[in-house]
Measured scan of single mutants.
Amino acid sequence: NRTSFTQEQIEALEKEFERTHYPDVFARERLAAKIDLPEARIQVWFSNRRAKWRR
């Protein structure tokens, strides 16, 4: 089942994506704690966001 992201979560994710397309585990963990999502969801979001960026 899909995770629905809040506007705040999307903004935080997009901001980090501007900084780096490949956040390391520490950056992902920090973001996970900040926006209250599992680190695995963040990893998947970045993977999908990079795919979207390449299109």
Rank of each mutant, 00 (worst) to 15 (best):
V25K: 11
L13M: 14
W45T: 00
E8S: 14
H21E: 08
V25F: 15
P23D: 00
V44R: 08
N48G: 05
E29S: 13
A32R: 08
D36Q: 09
T20L: 04
K52S: 13
D36E: 13
A27S: 15
E18S: 08
A33G: 11
S4W: 13
F5D: 03
E18M: 08
Q7R: 12
T20G: 10
P38W: 04
E16N: 04
A40D: 12
R50K: 02
L37F: 05
R55Q: 08
R41E: 15
W45S: 02
V44Y: 08
R50G: 01
Q43S: 11
D36S: 15
Q43P: 02
V25Q: 12
D36N: 11
A51M: 10
R55M: 05
P23Y: 05
T6H: 05
A40G: 08
F26I: 12
R28Y: 12
R19N: 04
A12V: 10
T20C: 13
E11V: 12
D24S: 09
A27E: 12
P38N: 14
R49S: 07
E29V: 09
F17P: 01
R54C: 14
I42L: 08
R19C: 06
A51D: 10
V25M: 15
H21S: 04
Q9T: 03
L37W: 04
E14I: 01
S47R: 09
Q7N: 12
W45P: 00
R41H: 08
K15S: 12
A32C: 04
P23I: 04
E18V: 08
A40V: 11
Q7S: 13
K34M: 13
A12K: 11
P38T: 14
L37I: 14
Q7P: 12
E8G: 10
I35T: 15
R28W: 04
T20D: 12
R54K: 11
D36H: 15
L31V: 03
W53P: 08
F26H: 14
R28N: 03
W53R: 07
F46K: 00
Q7G: 11
T6S: 12
R55K: 07
I42T: 01
R28K: 08
R30S: 15
E11W: 05
D36I: 03
I10F: 02
Y22D: 07
F26K: 15
R54Y: 07
A32L: 03
L13N: 00
I35G: 02
R41Q: 08
A51V: 07
D24Y: 01
A40S: 15
V44C: 09
S4P: 11
E8M: 04
A27F: 02
K52N: 11
R49N: 04
P23W: 00
F17K: 00
A51T: 05
R41S: 10
T6D: 06
S47T: 10
R54Q: 15
V44H: 08
L31S: 00
F5N: 02
V25I: 08
P38Q: 06
R41P: 05
Q9C: 04
T6G: 06
N1M: 05
I10Q: 11
A12C: 11
R19S: 08
V44S: 09
A32N: 02
E14G: 02
D24Q: 01
L31R: 00
Y22Q: 04
H21F: 07
Q43Y: 08
N1A: 06
Y22G: 01
A32M: 06
T3A: 10
Y22W: 07
